[in-house]
Amino acid sequence: MKRTFLGEFEEVVLLVIAGCTEEAYGVTIWERLQQQTGRAITMSAVHATLYRLEEKGYLASELGGATAERGGRRKRFFALTATGSKALLEIQEMRANLWQEIPAGKLQVIIK
């Protein structure tokens, strides 16, 4: 019924986590985000978004995997929840519908 809307950045973060083959945590997510978007993103922005998505229920997390270079601190691994996957799929579906409605030839004009 009531859908929580995802911001663009939030959507990208979810997609990055969805695309991770290994376990995703702060640093890896941050690096992949920068690679994929080509933007300079601060780590605090990534962390804030991760926590917020977790509050909204799109992500779940658990602690683990302390290493020496982290000063012995554990990582927080993030994974998509069912709600998260559903939200991504819904967005994709909505986008697909929207794409289909674009009359042929129109897009090229706009791009020009």
Binding site: Y25, G26, V27, W30, M43, H47, L63, A66, T67, E69, R70, G71, R73, R74, K75, R76
Partner: peptide, 10 residues
């Protein structure tokens, strides 16, 4: 814990 850990790793 995790934020500081991430920062150190970075």
């Amino acid at each position: 814990e995790d934020v500081q850990g991430d920062l150190h790793e970075f």
